[in-house]
Design a protein around this nucleic acid. Structure first.
Length: 366
DNA sequence: CATCCGTGGTG
DNA sequence: TCACCAAGGAT
């Protein structure tokens, strides 16, 4: 039996979503949805994977680029993985790109190119966890799955003034979400909760006066919504150091290599580097260059990863020949843009070759 | 369950 | 400036 209180909260949220939903490229508006237009599961899945720990603004251009290049899941399944990694470069969390490709292959070969339409079926695919399985099931297939991401955690923790810290409080919050999720319009409810968290129930300075839950929110009742969600203290970031070597040949090519398939920046392209160590004096000299050359310091790149900060001393050398290096290749500067270079490597190359990624890099000097 | 995994925007 | 953190998943 539905609880009248929960039912009222759900209705308030859906009414708010009808009026204030965001229009997004992968989304079907609530009006169109009521008229029978269904969201494309491929679009929903692709957007949800891209949106994992990533902002809407950052995702939009990547989403358009992927759809234009690979219009459906079977196109993505048959694409070279290097192309997918290169197209993903800059978006971060590169295991997502590897799993995106694996998932597309599984859908194409195991499911005949059609996404499973249940939470459990989706959950079994690579790169799809609890959140994404529930989101795709609800949004693309109208399943009453309980969708809980960081936005929903914030909304729920405030609405019910949950004092227990994350992540331990997740099961309690998930039960609250489950009780609120309607059999009718579960996808709109999930998207409404996320829109509410993104635009009204924000981490700092929430706009409670505009919130559909303003009359029922226990955190607002305590006059302290910013206190929630309570989170466990986080570790501080160590600093690691290393050196990167940008070798430029006389005919304008750069020495590149491929990082190991798993781990940090797995499967992405790099310039040769030393190992990145936490030692104070470690790895910032040309001693470990890929080959002897007239290595000149070009500066230091600082880049912040999730769990450490990297200070990379960049060396540059102009060389007349192209030494053949095991596991490396020489890439013309004007083709670097097509490589799967993560941001830290683009920073290092730009420091050594300032015009490497400028549109005019192929034009003669003026 | 804790740790590892990127990047860019924001207050 | 800098701490926070965004539609999390794999191990």
């Amino acid at each position: 039996m539905p609880d009248p209180f929960e039912t009222r909260l759900t209705r308030h949220l859906l009414d708010w979503y009808d009026r204030h939903h965001r229009d997004l490229p992968w989304r079907v508006t609530p009006t169109a949805h009521r008229q029978g237009l269904r969201a494309n599961p491929y679009h929903v899945w692709l957007s949800e994977v891209m949106l994992q720990q990533t902002t809407v603004q950052a995702v939009k251009p990547y989403f358009r680029k992927f759809l234009e290049r690979w219009p459906d899941v079977s196109d993505l399944a048959s694409a070279p993985v290097e192309d997918v990694m290169a197209a993903w470069a800059g978006l971060g969390y590169y295991a997502r790109a590897r799993n995106l490709k694996k998932c597309a292959e599984a859908v194409a070969s195991l499911h005949g190119g059609v996404f499973p339409d249940t939470e459990d079926g989706l959950r079994a695919l690579p790169g799809i966890g609890d959140y994404t399985a529930a989101a795709v099931a609800a949004i693309a297939f109208n399943r009453p799955a309980a969708v809980m991401d960081g936005n929903v955690e914030r909304v729920i923790s405030r609405l019910y003034a949950i004092d227990a810290p994350l992540p331990g409080s997740k099961p309690v919050m998930k039960a609250r979400v489950r009780a609120l999720t309607p059999v009718e319009r579960p996808g709109d409810f999930a998207q409404g909760m996320m829109d509410l968290g993104a635009t009204i129930c924000t981490p700092k300075r929430p706009s409670c006066v505009l919130c559909p839950f303003r009359d029922d929110c226990l955190a607002l009742g305590r006059d302290d919504p910013e206190r929630f969600p309570v989170k466990a203290a986080k570790k501080e970031k160590p600093i690691r150091q290393g050196a990167a070597f940008v070798a430029v040949s006389a005919d304008g090519a750069v020495l590149l290599s491929r990082r190991p398939a798993s781990g940090l920046l797995g499967g992405m392209t790099e310039v040769p580097t030393t190992s990145w160590t936490s030692r104070q004096d470690g790895g910032t000299t040309p001693d470990h260059a890929p080959f002897p050359a007239d290595w000149q310091p070009a500066g230091v790149v600082t880049h912040v990863f999730t769990h450490f900060e990297l200070r990379l001393t960049v060396f540059r050398a102009l060389i007349s020949t192209r030494p053949l290096m095991q596991g490396c290749w020489w890439e013309p500067v004007e083709q670097l843009e097509a490589q799967a270079l993560p941001t830290v490597m683009k920073k290092a190359i730009t420091l050594a070759i300032p015009r490497a990624f400028s549109p005019a890099s192929t034009a003669p000097d003026s």
